[in-house]
């Protein structure tokens, strides 16, 4: 591992993250299709990717917009979906303390799942924020490129009406869910949340079923782990 600082480290992070573009850019395009189908205009769809830069949260917001949810439900969902970023930033923070607050404030904007995964070993080894920022900027460019492509496609098919586009949500989240399913507590969390989500959707007014199901499933998974259903250290969800 070549732990360069400064411009060299930024360049390493940017280039070594390029393979991840194949996953991030299509996801950005899928988000844009979903957002356009939910009634956001082209500028709003692009603006959300530019300002928020959080794939799952943007997808969830598009689904909630499509369902007619209010601002509070969407903001609360954003908080819940992105709460994990607190943990990621907290784990990166100690070795970055010696850098300027301005630099750290900038680096924080590009802390996403993929840039965290690419850079955490280097950052914790003391090589500074350059690689993290290079990787995060690389993914940001991919996310914006994908969003732009999705907007272009959506403009071309506007007016086609119901072509099953809302299936994009459950299908995408299913692929994101798969890696968790081989850890028993995470599987229990998913099953409980799915049951609560369906029951809540059928029986409760409004979009609150989502928060109820997510928190209920999370606590069920944690309770299962606490009862020793699986050794915590070997849990795939802790990776």
């Amino acid at each position: 591992m070549n732990d360069r600082e400064g411009a060299g480290g930024f360049r390493d992070g940017f280039v070594q993250t390029l393979p991840l573009w194949t996953g991030v850019a299509p996801f950005g395009a899928a988000y844009a299709l979903a957002a356009r189908a939910a009634g956001l205009d082209a500028a709003e769809t692009a603006g959300m990717s530019l300002l928020v830069y959080a794939g799952s949260a943007q997808f969830a917001a598009a689904a909630l917009f499509a369902g007619g949810a209010g601002p509070l439900a969407i903001l609360l969902t954003t908080f819940i979906v992105n709460a994990r970023h607190i943990l990621m930033s907290a784990s990166l923070a100690p070795p970055l303390r010696r850098y300027s607050p301005l630099l750290r404030a900038g680096a924080a904007f590009v802390v996403v799942d993929e840039s965290y995964a690419m850079s955490v070993r280097r950052v914790l080894a003391g090589s500074g924020p350059a690689y993290l920022v290079g990787s995060g900027v690389s993914l940001y460019v991919a996310w914006l490129s994908g969003t732009t492509a999705g907007i272009a496609v959506a403009l071309g098919v506007a007016g086609l009406g119901p072509i099953g586009l809302d299936l994009v949500f459950p299908l995408s989240f299913f692929v994101l869910l798969i890696p968790y399913l081989n850890a028993p507590p995470a599987l229990i969390a998913a099953v409980v949340a799915g049951g609560l989500g369906l029951g809540g959707r059928l029986l409760l007014p409004g979009p609150w079923y989502l928060l109820l199901a997510a928190i209920g499933g999370m606590l069920a998974g944690d309770a299962a782990a606490s009862r020793g259903l699986v050794p915590r250290k070997r849990d795939a969800a802790t990776e």
Binding site: V81, P170, F173, L177, A189, G197, G216, A220, A237
Partner: peptide, 12 residues
């Protein structure tokens, strides 16, 4: 356990 719970809550 939030990610698997949330994804399932969205999917089902």
């Amino acid at each position: 356990y939030l990610p698997p719970a949330l994804f399932a809550a969205l999917i089902v």
